[in-house]
Structure formats: structure tokens, C-alpha cells
């Protein structure tokens, strides 16, 4: 029964004949949260229909690990546009197998919206999927990239996202009982709260400090 439903929704995407009907069909497919939709949703990312692509990203993020597996196995063959969408999905899922890709994206991607998704994603990596012994190293890498992006990125929204990311890494490190990872994060957040040229970024850093209950 579920299979027939999936087939119906897949068919609707195949036969969509307008941008709007494509969007509606992709949203309906994504709602199923069915692994069987992965390949179709990945194809939608390349259809030059941004509304549908966003819906496909959301759908793939909801599906989670199997979607990450599929993308990681295909991503080397992607052109820039498809790669950008794939990285948004990987950033949204936070599968640590994608960590190195997400780190590189946060620091270097041409597109500010992809950098922002990656920076934010570094704060919500699924650390529990790593062996305990590997988590610390991963958190240090995420932290160090975010420390740099939060200060150096020319776009305010990427620095804002990096601030959110730093809050996420700090929370994860504290939960993993790695308190020695925190002081550079605390220092960085204080610096941002004080001197970032964009008031929205200063505010987000200030809020991160409050939420982390760092003594100022």
C-alpha cells in the first residue's frame, strides 16, 4: 500500500507540467519521508526550479542518513549548481561522514547562501554517529573553521550563521564533557559581540553567550 502511494507521488513529479505543479508534487513526495523518494528528490535539485529544489532539500533532510549516503556517493560527479544544493542537504542533515565537505564549504564556497547553510550545519553535526574517540577531533575541526568564518567572512549573514554554529559546537562539546574546547569559543563570541560591524551579528553572539551561560 505504501509502495503504491510512493509510486503515485513519484509519478506526479515525473508528469508535472508547470513550475507550480512541480513544486506541489515535490512537496507531496517529500511529506512521505520515504527512502524510496531519494533518487527523485536528488534529481529535482538539478531541475532549475528553485522552489521545488528547496522542497526537495527539506525532504532529503527529513529522510536523513540514507539521503546523506546517496549524496556522498554521487557528489563528486556533480556540477557546481547541483553540488551547492547537495551541500545544503548535507549541512541540514549533519551526517559526520560529510564533515570535511561541510568544513570546506563553510570556509570557501563562492555562494554566501551555501556558506551560511554550512556554517550553521557545523553546529548541528550528528556527533553521536561517530565513535566517541573521534568526536573530539571532529568538534575541534568544526570549532576551528567556525572561529575563522565568524571573524573573517565578508558577509554578515555567514558570520551570523557561524555564531549559531559556534553555539552548537560549544553545547555539543560541553555535553561530551570536553570543556577545554570552550574557551576559544567563549573568547570569540565575546569579541564578536563587542566589535562585529553588523549589529545583528553582535546581538546573536550576545545571545549565544547568554544561552551558554558563559560568565562574561
Amino acid at each position: 500500500m505504501a509502495d503504491t502511494l510512493l509510486q503515485t507521488k513519484l509519478q506526479a513529479v515525473e508528469s508535472a507540467d508547470s513550475a507550480q505543479s512541480m513544486l506541489d508534487a515535490v512537496e507531496a513526495l517529500a511529506e512521505l519521508k520515504d527512502e524510496g523518494a531519494i533518487d527523485m528528490l536528488i534529481r529535482v535539485l538539478g531541475y532549475n526550479n528553485p522552489g521545488a529544489a528547496v522542497a526537495a532539500v527539506d525532504g532529503l533532510v527529513q529522510i536523513g542518513t540514507p539521503a546523506a549516503s546517496a549524496l556522498l556517493s554521487q557528489i563528486d560527479g556533480y556540477n557546481y549548481g547541483a553540488r551547492a544544493w547537495a551541500l545544503r542537504v548535507l549541512s541540514g542533515i549533519g551526517d559526520p561522514r560529510g564533515l570535511d565537505l561541510i568544513l570546506e564549504t563553510a570556509a570557501e564556497d563562492f555562494s554566501l547562501s551555501v556558506r551560511r547553510a554550512a556554517a550553521r550545519g557545523l553546529g548541528s553535526i550528528q556527533w553521536e554517529k561517530l565513535e566517541k574517540a573521534d568526536r573530539r577531533e571532529g568538534q575541534i575541526k568544526a570549532r576551528n573553521t567556525l572561529l575563522q568564518v565568524a571573524i573573517d567572512d565578508p558577509e554578515w549573514v555567514v558570520r551570523y550563521a557561524a555564531t549559531v554554529g559556534l553555539q552548537g559546537v560549544a553545547t555539543a562539546a560541553a555535553a561530551e564533557d570536553q570543556p577545554d574546547l570552550l574557551p576559544p569559543i567563549a573568547d570569540c563570541l565575546r569579541q564578536i559581540a563587542s566589535v562585529d560591524e553588523t549589529v545583528a551579528v553582535r546581538a546573536r553572539a550576545e545571545w549565544a553567550i547568554a544561552q551558554l551561560q558563559l560568565s562574561v
Binding site: R116, A117, A119, R120, V157, Y160, A161, V164, A193, V199, A200, R202, A203, R204, E206, W207, A210
Partner: peptide, 17 residues
Amino acid sequence: LVSDKTCKVMSLMDSLL
């Protein structure tokens, strides 16, 4: 910088990143 209202807006911004 930090108040109930500003946190509400920042929370929404976070969700759209």
C-alpha cells in the same frame, strides 16, 4: 541586543539559515 523580542526574531532567523 538581547531581549524577548530580539530573541524571537533571532530564533526565526536561525531557522531560515
